[in-house]
């Protein structure tokens, strides 16, 4: 690829972010030994929806805070090469 911008700088996916997403998706899977119900709703389903909500929050946070683009005003951007 011939783009002058460093791909690792642009990607919001740092190693710990991959790990966090993996954990959140794992948490959202119905694999946990949770039994019973709350307000008449099965706990496993509530857990899946709750984890999905957390996943949405984390995804939005990653998009807004970890995604850096050279066009945005930032002191670090001075180090990026132009194409």
């Amino acid at each position: 690829m011939n783009s002058g911008h460093s791909r690792s700088d642009l990607s919001p996916f740092k190693p710990w972010v991959w790990g966090a997403f993996a954990l959140l998706f794992l948490g959202a899977l119905p694999v946990w030994p949770i039994h019973g119900s709350l307000f008449g709703l099965p706990l496993w389903a509530l857990m899946a929806v709750a984890m999905s909500a957390v996943l949405s929050l984390f995804t939005a946070w990653v998009a807004l805070n970890l995604w850096k683009d050279p066009e945005e005003p930032s002191p670090q951007n001075d180090n990026h090469d132009a194409d």
């Binding site: 911008h5 642009l10 996916f13 995804t59 990653v62 998009a63 683009d69």
Partner: peptide, 24 residues
């Protein structure tokens, strides 16, 4: 619900670099 959220996560994997290149 999960797979529709996964679409947005998937965007974040390639969209930052692809957007920048599309501009350039």
């Amino acid at each position: 619900v999960h797979f529709m959220t996964a679409i947005v996560v998937a965007y974040l994997v390639f969209a930052p670099a692809l957007y920048r290149q599309s501009r350039d």
